[in-house]
Simulated scan of single mutants.
Amino acid sequence: MKYFKVLLLSLFLVIPAISQARITDGKDHIKLSGKKLVVTLEKGFHFVMESPAGLYMDGEMGSAEPVKKDTEKMIFDVSKVQDKSFTVSFYVCDDQKTVCESHEAHLKIQKNKLVKVEAEK
């Protein structure tokens, strides 16, 4: 009986974690193209034109809007970013219109390459 209670409690803890998996994770692709940051999505997903999107310099106020935004692609100007870390933020929705989820990527450009910035612990 004791093991049954432990198993039942474990299921109550595991099932909510499984049910909170995000279906849009991994569906966005961020690339550096010269002085532009290009964000695209896999087939079956889209950006919503009305949703907020921006590039935020870490430690500074304000944001930069995308220079181009449509349902399939967003482009940000990163010519002023240089070696500073920044966060790009946007919403991804599935084409079936069942879910829209926010996405953030913490990045830095070093030696003309895009580098992911690890979160501080």
Rank of each mutant, 00 (worst) to 15 (best):
K108T: 13
A119E: 14
H29Q: 11
Y3P: 07
P66E: 05
G26F: 10
A53D: 13
L13F: 10
G59L: 09
R22A: 08
K27V: 03
Y56A: 07
V14A: 08
F45R: 00
A119T: 09
D95W: 01
P52Y: 15
E120R: 12
L41T: 04
S79G: 09
K108E: 06
T71E: 12
I75S: 00
S63N: 06
I30R: 00
L55C: 02
A53V: 13
K108R: 08
A21E: 12
S89Q: 10
V99N: 07
A17N: 12
T24R: 02
K35N: 08
V48N: 10
L11H: 06
S63I: 04
S33H: 14
N112T: 05
H103Q: 07
Q82W: 08
M1G: 07
S79V: 08
K80V: 06
D70L: 01
F47S: 00
S10H: 02
F76T: 02
L11R: 05
E118K: 15
F90I: 14
I75F: 00
D70H: 04
H106V: 09
M57F: 03
L7M: 14
H106S: 04
A53N: 07
V38S: 06
N112Y: 11
S79E: 05
D94W: 03
L7T: 10
V81S: 10
V38E: 07
Y91G: 07
M74A: 01
D70M: 02
D58K: 11
M57R: 15
C93F: 01
L8P: 01
V48T: 11
D28T: 02
V48S: 10
T40V: 08
E104D: 14
K35A: 04
E42P: 01
